[in-house]
Amino acid sequence: MDFLDYLENKAHCSVNTRNQRLAALKSFSSYVIRTNPEYIDNFNQILNIKVKRTETKIVPYLTTEGIKLLLSAPNIHSHNGLRDTAILSLMYESGCRVQELIDLKVEDLFFQNTDVVRLHGKGNKIRLVPISRNCSNIIKKYINISSKNLESNNFLFTNHSKKQFTRAGIAYLLNKYEKIARKQDPTLFTVKVHPHVLRHSKAMHLLENGVNLIYIRDFLGHESVTTTEIYAKCNPELKRKYLSQNSKLIEEDLVEYNRNEKDELLKWLKHNIL
């Protein structure tokens, strides 16, 4: 407990960091109990330490109007502008992580009846994600004008040095186009836009359109639907929609009492309660 207090009060670590360290200590404690049961009383005390509650963070995301404005910011008539449009479009359409994007190779795209991108996620897990026809057309156009430098085993997106993008490079591009879009309509950019915001935005928009959380979990590559549930908890528009629907049901079920029924109810209340 002194160690956990030190992390928070002297090392100025966040509550999340404190809880992560505690999780590591609990994992070690479980191991010791299995291998050296004579210490069970000591290490059970560690297992009984409760994690500290943290405030639920608001998930930052853009509206569909904000996404449209952001995607229109690059100049698609230049090679780099078309590349950047393809990057932003694919990040939003597939809901991919930054590392998944920069690891993409040309051979990971499948243009068929349903256009699909193959993403290599955490733990070397692979998932196939469908993309819209508009997004695939942008990518096809980018591949066509870059065909001299692209082979099937090449990275799909490269920087000005013809090398694989870095996470910082993608963040720089996004920041560049956010500034352009923000100047046109600052009301659509009330959150700080970073690469993961596009992933959050896609999840929120799927949820708002009635897509089941199970499908969104698989789409995003989450291990558990519990991780995906944060989008349902943090979406005010979704809450408003469901509250509105339920209020209509309540109004439809309201039954007006006639005068005799009201008098009988008042008599019963006076007799049994007053």
Rank of each mutant, 00 (worst) to 15 (best):
F28W: 11
E208H: 10
T228P: 05
R21E: 07
P60H: 07
I76P: 06
S94R: 01
A181P: 08
D5R: 05
L266F: 10
L82Q: 06
G169T: 11
N258I: 08
L269T: 04
T85E: 09
S161T: 07
K192F: 04
F165L: 13
M204C: 11
N159Y: 11
S132Q: 06
L104G: 01
F219E: 01
L243M: 13
T227Q: 06
V255F: 12
V211I: 15
D84G: 02
A232M: 12
L173M: 14
C96R: 02
S224H: 13
R259N: 13
K57E: 12
L213I: 12
T226H: 10
P74K: 06
I180S: 04
V116Q: 09
C234H: 11
G66R: 08
E55K: 13
N16T: 13
G95W: 09
E65D: 15
S136K: 01
D103E: 13
K148D: 15
I170Y: 00
P74N: 06
I273D: 01
N80A: 10
S146N: 15
L22H: 07
L69V: 01
N75V: 00
C96M: 14
F3Q: 05
K192M: 08
K162L: 12
E55C: 01
I33Q: 04
L90H: 02
L266T: 07
Q245K: 15
Y231F: 07
H200Y: 07
K140H: 03
P74W: 05
H160T: 10
E38T: 11
N159C: 07
D185N: 15
R167H: 04
N124M: 09
D263N: 13
E252V: 04
W268A: 15
Y177K: 10
V225I: 15
L266Q: 10
L109R: 00
S201L: 01
T228I: 08
H79C: 03
Y61L: 02
N260D: 14
Y142F: 13
K176Q: 14
I102T: 05
V129T: 14
A23M: 11
L82W: 02
V106W: 00
N134C: 03
D41S: 11
K270I: 06
V129H: 07
H205A: 01
Q99V: 05
L101G: 02
L104V: 01
N144I: 08
D2H: 11
T56I: 14
K262V: 15
L119D: 07
V32Y: 08
R21A: 12
K202N: 01
G221Q: 07
C135V: 00
H120F: 09
V51Q: 15
I58P: 04
T114C: 02
P236A: 03
K262D: 12
L7V: 03
I216G: 05
H79K: 13
S146Q: 11
L4S: 08
R167T: 12
F111S: 02
S201W: 03
N44E: 11
K241C: 00
N235W: 00
I40H: 10
A203Q: 03
N209Q: 13
D5V: 00
Y172G: 05
L188P: 02
D108F: 05
V116Y: 02
Y257P: 14
T35H: 14
T35R: 10
S147L: 08
K233Y: 13
L238F: 13
N154R: 03
N272S: 12
Q112G: 04
L4G: 04
S247V: 03
H77L: 12
C13D: 09
H200P: 01
I87T: 07
S78M: 00
R34L: 14
P236D: 13
S146M: 11
C234D: 14
R53S: 15
L22G: 02
